[in-house]
Amino acid sequence: MGEISIKINIADRVYPLRVTHEEEEIIRHAAKLVNEKIKELQDNYSVRDKQDLLSMSVLQFATAMLKAEQKAQNNEEGLDQAVHELDKLLTQFFQK
């Protein structure tokens, strides 16, 4: 599928983008989350500079992403270990 042109508003600035149709909903949702985080930070702290609000938002999203990646990696390692244990048990069972 081809690309489409969309405009995304983040922190009162409009960004024209070319995205695939499949990406459009995700990108619009991501922009909404960023704007909501900026609004939340603006309401809770005395920061008014958009650059500072964007930086703080990016830091929070990046931290959450890294935590999620670490959790997924730990789950994957646990799954690998469980599969290895199951394989070992099955091998022992069928050798009898």
Rank of each mutant, 00 (worst) to 15 (best):
38 I>K: 00
14 V>N: 12
32 K>G: 07
67 K>P: 00
84 H>Q: 14
29 H>V: 04
33 L>R: 15
7 K>C: 01
66 L>M: 08
72 A>Q: 12
78 G>H: 09
52 D>V: 08
96 K>N: 11
90 L>I: 08
39 K>L: 12
21 H>Y: 06
6 I>A: 07
88 K>Q: 14
63 T>H: 15
78 G>Q: 13
19 V>W: 02
24 E>C: 07
77 E>N: 13
76 E>K: 11
57 S>T: 15
48 R>Q: 09
82 A>Y: 06
15 Y>Q: 03
25 E>P: 02
28 R>K: 14
70 Q>Y: 08
48 R>T: 14
50 K>D: 05
16 P>V: 05
45 Y>A: 02
14 V>E: 14
45 Y>S: 15
94 F>V: 11
44 N>C: 04
93 F>L: 14
58 V>I: 15
1 M>P: 09
30 A>C: 11
95 Q>H: 10
1 M>E: 05
86 L>Q: 04
79 L>M: 11
54 L>R: 09
15 Y>F: 15
44 N>E: 15
2 G>T: 10
91 T>K: 14
15 Y>T: 02
44 N>H: 10
46 S>F: 11
52 D>Y: 08
4 I>V: 14
25 E>R: 02
92 Q>Y: 07
20 T>I: 06
71 K>T: 10
51 Q>K: 13
3 E>L: 09
96 K>Y: 06
25 E>H: 08
60 Q>H: 13
26 I>N: 10
68 A>S: 13
25 E>K: 14
37 K>M: 08
48 R>F: 04
72 A>Y: 05
59 L>K: 02
36 E>K: 12
35 N>L: 06
59 L>I: 13
36 E>F: 04
2 G>V: 04
21 H>M: 06
21 H>I: 11
92 Q>V: 07
6 I>W: 05
16 P>L: 06
86 L>I: 09
34 V>E: 01
11 A>R: 01
76 E>C: 02
11 A>H: 07
26 I>V: 12
21 H>K: 13
93 F>M: 11
13 R>A: 06
5 S>R: 13
86 L>V: 06
45 Y>G: 00
82 A>D: 12
33 L>F: 04
91 T>F: 06
74 N>P: 00
93 F>R: 15
88 K>E: 12
39 K>D: 11
24 E>H: 02
24 E>Q: 14
38 I>E: 01
52 D>G: 06
57 S>G: 04
14 V>H: 05
9 N>I: 09
29 H>L: 10
42 Q>I: 00
48 R>Y: 03
78 G>I: 04
64 A>W: 01
84 H>C: 03
11 A>L: 07
56 M>G: 04
27 I>R: 01
57 S>P: 00
94 F>K: 14
89 L>H: 09
40 E>M: 10
18 R>W: 03
38 I>Y: 01
23 E>R: 13
95 Q>F: 03
94 F>Q: 12
81 Q>F: 05
16 P>A: 05
17 L>F: 08
69 E>M: 11
59 L>N: 05
85 E>Y: 11
31 A>F: 02
1 M>N: 06
22 E>C: 00
30 A>K: 12
1 M>A: 12
61 F>N: 07
74 N>Y: 03
23 E>P: 00
95 Q>V: 07
65 M>S: 08
94 F>W: 11
83 V>N: 07
71 K>E: 14
49 D>W: 05
42 Q>L: 03
59 L>S: 07
15 Y>L: 11
57 S>D: 02
44 N>R: 15
95 Q>M: 08
85 E>F: 10
78 G>F: 02
